[in-house]
Structure formats: C-alpha cells, structure tokens
C-alpha cells in the first residue's frame, strides 16, 4: 500500500501545534504562579493602598448588593417551592426550613453568589484593567513612579477576597428570608419558629466552611480577572477576550474548588 503523503506532511504540523499549545499551557501556569507570588510580595510591602482597597470594596461589595439580593431571594423562594411537594409526599413538610437552610448555607449561597460575582466583578476587572493596559494607562502609571500592580491589582484582589464572605452571608440571609415568606404563605409559621427550625441543623462547621469557600472564591475571581486584564493584548479585541476569559476561568475554578472543599468538609464532618 502506498504511503499517505498528504497525512505524513500534515502530521508534523499538527505535532508542532499540539506541542505549542502544551508549551503555552505550562507557560500560563508558571505566569499565574509568578502573578500570585508578586501579589503576596506587594501585599506586605509599603506603602499600603488602604484608601483604594476601601474604594474597591465599595465597588465590588456595595454595588453588587442589589443583584445578589434579587438572586438570593429568588433562590430561596424557588428552592422552597420545588422541595415542598417531595417532602409533603413523605409527610415531612416540617423539615422544610432545615432542608432549605442546609442547602442555602452549605452550597447555594456560596455558589450562586460566587457565580454572580464572577460574571459581574470578574468581567469588570478583566475589562477595566485590559482597557487600561491597551490604552497605555498602566504604563503611564508606571512612569509616574506609581506601582500599578500594587495600586490596581493588589487592591482589587484584596477587596473581592474581603467582600465575598460578606456577600455570601448576606445572600444566605436573603435566601432564608425568601424561603420563610414562602413557608409563611403556606403554613403561617412565625419568623422565630422558622429560624429556630432552620438553624437547628446548621453547625459551626457549615458556617466556617462557607466563609472559607467564599474567601477562596473571592481570591480566585480577583486573580483570574486581574491576571487576564493586566496581560491583555491586541486592542479592543484583547479587552473583550480578557473579560470573557476572566469569567469562564473563574466559574470553572469555582466549581473545581467547590468539589474539593466539599470532599474535605465531608471528611471532617
């Protein structure tokens, strides 16, 4: 049989392409490692940009409140409505507050808030820093003797890392309120009785693991958004790509972290 000349010519090209992609993947991982190492180095070196950290906390925290309130409330209402028929079948409607509180505190509040933050805050960081990068604003900051990494990156990562636990606890509370309104509409349960029943099954480990997850998610969103924006290239197209990649990467990593943390917490429990 005659050798397939066409394929034999394409094969080295494909090999080179695969090799280039693998090379690029490991280079990216190394660059992210360097980026995180630089973050910790700059975090503990003077001068501290506290004013900008507070400004960023306002930007990522306060300005996300409306969105997370709405999504948290809807999550609580919908989850309660969906769970009621199944529990009623077994005559276990009284377990509804406990079920909802476990679901919201352990999983729904952290995940929903983190995904909302990845979409809103992560894309904003990617686009804002990307735009500053391609219009030379970051260079302008550097030549005016200001450390742009400290001023733009460290402050943003710190702000989202601080604010995520706050947002997640807030979303949990709003979700529980949504659930209570639904329960109250059906069973005329009082607020005190509802929360007493709801918190009967919640342990310190549940709250602690949620706060820990929130901190991890916040750091992940901050690093992904800032890294993509800070390294944006190729004009407006690069800005769009930076924002998009920041969101997709954050969401993917959030799910991976959720999987790992759940395993660890369950092992401890």
């Amino acid at each position: 049989m005659a050798p397939d000349l066409e394929n034999s010519e394409i094969l080295p090209e494909k090999k080179a392409l695969i090799s280039k992609k693998i090379d690029s993947f490991f280079t990216d991982i190394y660059n992210v490692y360097k980026f995180i190492a630089l973050f910790f180095k700059e975090l503990f070196s003077r001068p501290f940009e506290w004013k900008e950290v507070i400004n960023q906390c306002y930007q990522v925290g306060y300005k996300s409140l409306a969105l997370v309130s709405l999504t948290g409330f809807i999550t609580g209402v919908v989850f309660t409505k969906q769970s009621r028929p199944s529990l009623s079948t077994f005559g276990a409607s009284s377990w509804l507050p406990s079920l909802v509180s476990i679901a919201i505190i352990r999983a729904l509040a952290p995940l929903v808030t983190a995904l909302i933050a990845a979409g809103k805050v992560g894309s904003n960081m990617g686009a804002e820093l990307g735009s500053m990068k391609v219009t030379e604003q970051i260079d302008a900051m550097e030549v005016s003797a200001t450390n742009p990494f400290k001023f733009l990156v460290v402050t943003r990562i710190l702000a989202i890392t601080f604010m995520m636990p706050v947002l997640i606890l807030y979303t949990g509370f709003i979700g529980m309120m949504g659930s209570y309104l639904n329960v109250h509409a059906n069973e005329l349960t009082s607020l005190t009785a509802y929360f007493k029943s709801a918190f009967a099954t919640i342990s310190f480990l549940d709250i602690f693991s949620s706060i820990f997850k929130a901190t991890m998610y916040g750091f992940t969103i901050g690093v992904a958004g800032c890294y993509q924006g800070y390294h944006a290239q190729n004009g407006t197209q690069g800005v769009g790509k930076a924002a998009n990649t920041a969101v997709v990467l954050s969401m993917f990593l959030i799910f991976v972290e959720e999987l790992v943390i759940v395993q660890v917490v369950n092992a401890i429990r």
Binding site: S131, M132, T135, E136, Q137, D139, A140, M141, V143, S144
Partner: peptide, 10 residues
C-alpha cells in the same frame, strides 16, 4: 513621559 494617545486615566 507624554504618551502618543495621552493615556489619561479615563
């Protein structure tokens, strides 16, 4: 350093 596109912080 005066940049070509001014590079003002927008």
């Amino acid at each position: 350093f005066s940049f070509q596109n001014s590079a003002l912080y927008d």
